[in-house]
Design a protein around this nucleic acid. Structure first.
Length: 112
DNA sequence: AGCCTGACCTAGG
DNA sequence: TCCTAGGCCAGGC
C-alpha cells in the first residue's frame, strides 16, 4: 500500500509525540502511517529531519532490535547515545537495554 | 533516462 | 526457523 502525499509531515508528527525516556522503531512508524514496508523511507525522512524548524527527537528512533543504527547522523559518533542516556535509557554496544519495556508503539499510543 | 543506494522490515518459500 | 527477495521514496551519478 502506497504512502499518503503528506507522509513526511505525518512522520515528523509521530516522532514528535515520542515521550522522553521511550523509544520506537522505523517499522512501527511505517505501520502507523499505513505502509508496513516503508520503514526504509522512514529512515530517509528522519535523515532530513534536522532541516525542520521544530525539533524532532529522532534519537528516540532505533531499529527493530533496539540498535542505534542512525548514530552516524548526529554529528559526533556518540551524540545519539548521549541524548538517550540523558533521558535515563541505558545503552550497551549501541543497543538499548530493556528495549521491550521502553518501546513506545505509535499504533497503540496514538490509537491509529 | 535508468541504476544504485540508504537511519529498515516483512512476506513467502 | 532460517534465508532470500522485494517493497517503499527520493537523490546522486
Amino acid at each position: 500500500m502506497p504512502l499518503e502525499d503528506n507522509y513526511v509531515q505525518t512522520i515528523y508528527d509521530i516522532v514528535a509525540h515520542i515521550p522522553e525516556g521511550r523509544v520506537t522503531t522505523y517499522g512501527h512508524i511505517a505501520r502507523a502511517i499505513g505502509s508496513t514496508r516503508a520503514s526504509r523511507v522512514v529512515g530517509w525522512t528522519l535523515n532530513k529531519s534536522h532541516t525542520q524548524a521544530t525539533h524532532i527527537p529522532a534519537h528516540r528512533v532505533v531499529n527493530r532490535v533496539g540498535i542505534l543504527t542512525g548514530r552516524h547522523h548526529f554529528g559526533t559518533e556518540n551524540e545519539m547515545q548521549k541524548r538517550l542516556e540523558a533521558e535515563g535509557i541505558s545503552i550497551k554496544d549501541h543497543q538499548v537495554q530493556n528495549f521491550d519495556n521502553l518501546l513506545w508503539d505509535p499504533v497503540v499510543e496514538l490509537a491509529l
